[in-house]
Design a protein around this nucleic acid. Structure first.
Lengths: 237, 237
DNA sequence: CGCGACTTTGAAGTAAATCAATGGGCGTGG
DNA sequence: CCACGCCCATTGATTTACTTCAAAGTCGCG
């Protein structure tokens, strides 16, 4: 974990820029800045270890953090892929429990690390901040539930289709494009699949004319029809 | 949904008795009581529907609520089994999103239902309550993550072993007993398995002398050795 | 241009789902 | 008190979808 000697002014500036802190009073931001630092993480650099106590609340400034649970046969189950502006660790810090997952950089990343003590102190002082934390954790909880729903699908086609449809901007869009947030490998791990299976399913859906795959860019051609598949079994050949 | 005409005094009494409300100020409890009712739910009675807006925060007084996500081929993925003293719906109400799961009574149950509006209003007035809600949602989030970890295990034996070990009172106990919180069917659904598979795995672990199964009561004989299995592959025969 | 990281494709093996039938426990009612 | 029916759990035989292992193919980048 590389702690660069970044100027305090830079930290304060970053704090003010991030959407995460928009609703925080200036006084709180000053306190935060005092107990914060900017961390530079190279690709594959570790941010947090499972079962270790978290020292900081993290906000991703740039890059991508892969949050995952290690499995036997050294595979991993990706829990979330955290991008710029998103945060990490609230629930852990609030309960003062050990970290339930590993977190490593998926690409070169910059993180704002806010001292746990300072975070907790500011939280106790302002109901709006507690409220915001409550909303963040709630949101993460709901996302988790959606992921659970996806992974509970029995067939790989169903899982991928559900995942793709999760990114539909509005229920009215019949087609749309979106960018995979990480390597296919990691997306697969998020869906509880192997990369091979994901590749095959994507290929299958492509052949059906339901989607078009260009590297990490996927165009869903016919969302309603894709949603149909969600309710079918046996979608092979 | 059966709303019995229970006396307001009974409601107030219940509110004061539940651990959930111990840290709430009396004034807040009075407001809550005014906006609350006690709901009696027969076995299999529906408490909440997926994708419908939640009108209440629920606290289970007695009985058991099965929270689950419906799957194609009318199976279900149990998300949690909510018993007396536990609550349901905070995250949903905080974000004002539609309910992400179905909830039905696993046995005849009594619930305290607190009006969503009243709950939200009281939350805004008192930082301690917001803080408590934050802790509850955080706790649920962490539990979810543990469930995710269990379901991510590739083999059924690993999943069941992980689940059993989750109930170890302390890491020092080499053996302990615990009661399944629901029908094996529902426990299986919580582990992402069929009842048949759970039955087979339990039988297998029993034959290995690692556990003893008597209906819903399970005695783990040798937790460390069971934990060993967690790190192995291929545990059949 | 060539190397490394990532992805795709193929062939084979396996664990869990599925289907089907039996067995046990418990409450209800005769 | 026994008998019936219901619900839940178990057990067995079969199927199938996913993983696994292996190898070739892309892509981007120095």
């Amino acid at each position: 974990m590389n702690r660069l000697p970044i100027s305090p002014a830079r930290i304060s500036e970053t704090l003010h820029r991030l959407a995460y802190f928009q609703s925080w009073p200036d006084a709180a931001l000053e306190h935060l800045a005092a107990g914060s630092k900017i961390i530079t993480l190279p690709k594959h650099g570790a941010m947090a270890q499972k079962n270790e106590r978290l020292e900081f609340l993290y906000v991703v400034v740039s890059g991508l953090i892969r949050v995952f649970i290690p499995l036997p046969n050294n595979m991993e189950r990706v829990v979330s892929l955290v991008g710029p502006g998103e945060s990490l660790g609230e629930a852990c810090l609030v309960l003062d429990e050990v970290c339930p997952y590993h977190a490593v950089a998926g690409k070169d990343s910059h993180l704002l690390a806010i001292d746990a003590m300072v975070f907790r102190r500011e939280l106790g002082k302002d109901i709006a901040l507690t409220r915001q934390a409550l909303e963040m954790v709630s949101r993460r909880f709901m996302e988790n539930l959606r992921d659970t729903e996806i992974c509970a699908q029995r067939s790989s086609v169903l899982r991928v289709a559900s995942y793709l449809l999760l990114h539909r901007p509005t229920p009215e869009d019949i087609s749309f494009t979106f960018q995979l947030p990480a390597r296919k490998q990691d997306v697969a791990a998020k869906l509880g699949l192997t990369q091979e299976t994901l590749s095959r399913v994507l290929g299958f859906l492509d052949k059906q004319g339901l989607i078009q795959v260009n590297a990490g860019k996927i165009r869903i051609e016919d969302a309603p029809r894709l949603a149909q598949i969600t309710t079918m079994k046996n979608c092979n050949d």
